[in-house]
């Protein structure tokens, strides 16, 4: 419950910044910003979409980057699957839409604590501590953003790049991530200067990880393999509890 309160505060703050930035940087209408928060419900991917839209990226490219950025959810989904065994198809299908870094981290820790599936243990963090605060705060942010005529005067124009950089820092769990980030930035800037920002962002996002993989696994010093509760803590909003730790079973492993 205490962890859940932390997530509420975090989701409210981050959702508010998202709404504000979507309005002032991406020029999203309130309906568009809310549609993103309700339908896509993708946290960092939503934030990134502001940059994609602002830089004029084509929708198929946005779709590709969204898929790649959110592909980690497949691992969370696989990790939760054994706990959902026996639940109805409809319940599992609905649960999938609400699967976020935060709901995964809280739910898997709860299931392990009680040793079985517990409906409240999933739906409470998914809806009460994440979905509702995120959407309320998005609405508040986009409404306030609507009232600000000159965003740069209030320093709001730096929120987007600073938020992207801050979120990135949370993902740096080993040398490979650091190399991928540096390569992504360098390739992104270089390609942007050569052929424009839309291509630059795609190039950095797709080629950067390839450069990161050049670091041998033996030297990666990985702290939080993807799909573990520890990785959810890193992928989630900063201050998200990371769950039991990095020694938990890998996704797909039976509880």
């Amino acid at each position: 419950m205490i962890d859940g309160l932390g997530i509420v505060v975090s989701a409210m703050g981050f959702g508010f910044v998202y709404g504000l930035t979507a309005r002032t940087v991406g020029h999203f209408s309130p309906v568009e910003a809310m549609a993103m928060s309700l339908i896509a419900f993708g946290g960092a991917a939503q934030f990134a979409a502001i940059g994609y839209v602002a830089s004029g990226l084509a929708w198929p490219a946005i779709a590709l980057l969204t898929f790649l950025l959110n592909a980690r959810h497949a691992l969370y989904s696989a990790a939760l699957a054994p706990w959902f065994r026996g639940r109805s198809f409809a319940e599992r299908a609905a649960a999938a839409h609400l699967l976020t870094d935060e709901s995964f981290a809280l739910a898997i820790a709860h299931f392990k604590r009680v040793g079985r599936y517990d409906a409240i243990g999933y739906w409470y963090p998914a809806i009460v501590t994440t979905l509702i605060p995120w959407n309320i705060a998005t609405f508040a942010g986009v409404m306030l953003g609507d009232a600000i005529v000159e965003p740069s005067r209030f320093g709001i124009d730096v929120i987007f790049p600073a938020a992207m950089a801050g979120l990135m820092v949370g993902l740096l769990t080993g040398r490979r991530e650091v190399v991928a980030a540096i390569a992504g930035a360098a390739i992104g800037v270089g390609s942007s200067l050569a052929v424009g920002p839309p291509i630059g962002i795609i190039a950095g996002g797709i080629l950067g990880p390839g450069v990161g993989l050049l670091v041998p696994a033996s030297r990666a010093n990985e702290e939080a393999p993807i799909g573990t509760p520890a990785s959810a803590g890193h992928f989630g909003m900063p201050r998200t509890p990371s769950g039991p730790g990095t020694n938990d079973p890998r996704p797909g492993q039976r509880p």
Partner: peptide, 28 residues
């Protein structure tokens, strides 16, 4: 489960995309 190489690649997508967005936003 996905092959290990694919998992390793996916883990690096987040840092690379977010770094590219931040860098392009302030440097270009």
């Amino acid at each position: 489960r996905l092959p290990g190489r694919a998992l390793a690649y996916l883990q690096l997508v987040g840092p690379a995309v977010l770094a590219a967005l931040a860098a392009v936003n302030v440097m270009v």
